[in-house]
Design a binder for these strands. Structure first.
Lengths: 347, 347
DNA sequence: CTGAAAGCGCTTACAG
DNA sequence: CTGAAAGCGCTTACAG
């Protein structure tokens, strides 16, 4: 059963192809009666305008593409959900390109999809700046969490949230903390590292930085040895996945959170579901995705779009993974220590 | 700067459009010298064949669409990752449609994308059978986790895994267990419920069924009251997200896993990252996605594709959320009980 | 308000 | 092995 085309509808409705076309794209040019007649027979025939033909004719594809490093990461799947929903609302379909954290694949995906989309949303691109600019020169591009002058961008400012987290930890008596980050290429991680360093200095905390590599649960777990060696009592992680990994690594060693160690994450997607629930900086992932799509689509509608930078504030959400600093075990001080030996050694 | 078209390349290379076209799509029909000449000038001009025009002309889009109920669910994001990667490998781009667990949106997405894709992968469709068949009659469709005669499908058979889980629990001394499922529309949930019921009967366990509604962390947490009321000592959940929710609900009430209660999940994406790590049935999500794409694409290549059903076995992975049944508290039995009172009440 | 016709950038029988 | 030409299904000035 062949798909009905505009010709068939025109013939059946007794009008020209142009009229059928207008009934769908510019009904205000037609008599209500004509519109109704055309739409009616279209409905009856199951006709839907062919997007491909429309795209070739108008030069507008009605599609956008979202390129991201890893859909399996909750931050990006939440972001993708927000982006896709918003694009759908505005009549656009969404391509997904997963670059597997690779700059090269990102480049290839951009090139391959260019002809089929009206614009791109690049979430946390791993591409270097010149290449991003090259693609942006050919097709409208909005980047998320990358601050490039002259390119539309949505930035989730998690700095204040991380600062608040450091203040929280300082207030709880922690003196030595760590920031566990992703590789240098990540704008977000750099931003968070800076906030932690600055806030730590301001509150007299010593701060060590650890690079976990590709942000994953394993990466978090694997850096626990380093954390303990460094003698810190709290860690702020680049995201919740890494934070959860750190908690798992601590649990493996019999350390409890927050009793023995405090952990802070970021994104706040899985944070409420971990055990214990993570204190985390909310990154408003879905909103970031939706805003990026809006920025892109508004730019398309506008002949000379002003380049906008949209900033979303990420605030701290305090849950159960942060608590008072543990009393230092190796060198107990205070007068009660000698008078009250460890109960476990009593027997 | 206008995008170069086939005409420009033809003129510059001193050949016809047909020759340029062939140089890209069927070079074996041309002299190597001609191919080289054409490709050279194309390269120099920055020419890339316009996919949209090609699609209109050939009727082949070079795209597929993946429709799923919720990208934010780890099962589907993992599946999407596998599908997208495989499609890319075979030269296809992937549209994502998130139906938000809604049959209607699924229907709309199918219709809107139909003209732009060569086929669909429907993961756990919420659509009723007649509508799925309607769409399958127009465009090649492969469904995942839905058993529809005559339609290509990939089924993850988690039945044996759930059976193994029930056997495990029975061996650990549990006598009353629960299956916490999703709504009736889910083929997977029905399959799992059947396996649990059958295995429970075979091993003399009493089995209660609880419907958690839309599978989510909250849904899992919310059904804990019902679980405890029902007097069961273990729960098997439709997926890991719900299982994790159940663990959270138990923790809220001061119950420990697996000490006081055992929990089993399914999918095995987040299972290794929860605390305690979940005993779970591996659903091979990424593989399912990749296989579905292969099935679809192989079908496209084949003039009269044989309808295949591809079955993936899901096996049980035992971790820390399952343990011996707790001794029944209200009616302690055994001779030692009176002789040895609870130590905590001693003081 | 509506229609006839050209054109979007390709592909592909059909000739030669 | 290569070219001229029709056609894919729309949209949109241009007339009327």
């Amino acid at each position: 059963m062949p798909v009905p085309t505009i010709r068939l509808v025109a013939r059946e409705a007794g009008v020209s192809q142009a009229t059928v076309s207008r009934a769908f794209s510019q009904p205000e040019l037609l008599t209500p009666a004509t519109v109704e007649k055309v739409l009616g027979t279209a409905q009856r025939l199951g006709y839907v305008p062919n997007q491909v033909a429309r795209a070739l004719s108008t030069g507008r594809a009605g599609n956008i593409a979202l390129i991201l490093p890893d859909v399996a990461n909750p931050f990006f799947s939440a972001l993708m959900r927000g982006a896709q929903a918003q694009a759908y609302k505005r009549g656009y379909a969404t391509f997904l390109g997963d670059s597997d954290e690779t700059a090269h694949l990102e480049d290839v995906l951009l090139a391959k999809l260019a002809a089929q989309v009206d614009g791109f949303v690049l979430a946390s691109p791993r591409l270097d700046e010149p290449l991003i600019r090259k693609h942006a020169a050919r097709k409208p591009v909005v980047v998320i969490n990358r601050d490039l002058e002259g390119i539309g961008r949505v930035l989730v400012d998690t700095g204040p949230g991380f600062t608040a987290a450091v203040v929280l930890l300082a207030g709880l008596g922690h003196r030595a903390i760590a920031y566990v980050g992703a590789p240098r290429t990540s704008w977000s991680s750099q931003q968070r590292a800076r906030a932690v360093t600055a806030a730590g200095a301001a509150h007299g905390l010593s701060v060590v930085q650890i690079d976990a590599g590709r942000p994953s649960h394993e990466a978090g777990r694997d850096c626990v040895a380093g954390l303990l060696e460094a003698g810190v009592t709290a860690a702020l992680a680049v995201d919740d996945v890494v934070a959860q990994g750190i908690m798992a690594g601590l649990a493996e060693r019999g350390l409890s959170v927050p009793g023995d160690f405090s952990v802070v994450g970021c994104d706040d997607i899985i944070a409420a579901t971990t055990y214990p629930p993570l204190t985390s900086v909310n990154a408003h992932c879905a909103l970031a995705g939706a805003n990026a799509v809006d920025l892109l689509l508004n730019g398309l509608a506008n002949p000379t779009p002003p380049v906008e930078g949209h900033v979303i504030k990420g605030e701290l959400v305090i849950r159960g993974s942060t608590g008072p600093a543990p009393a230092p075990a190796p060198a107990p001080r205070g007068r009660k220590a000698p008078a009250e030996p460890d109960p476990s050694s009593r027997k």
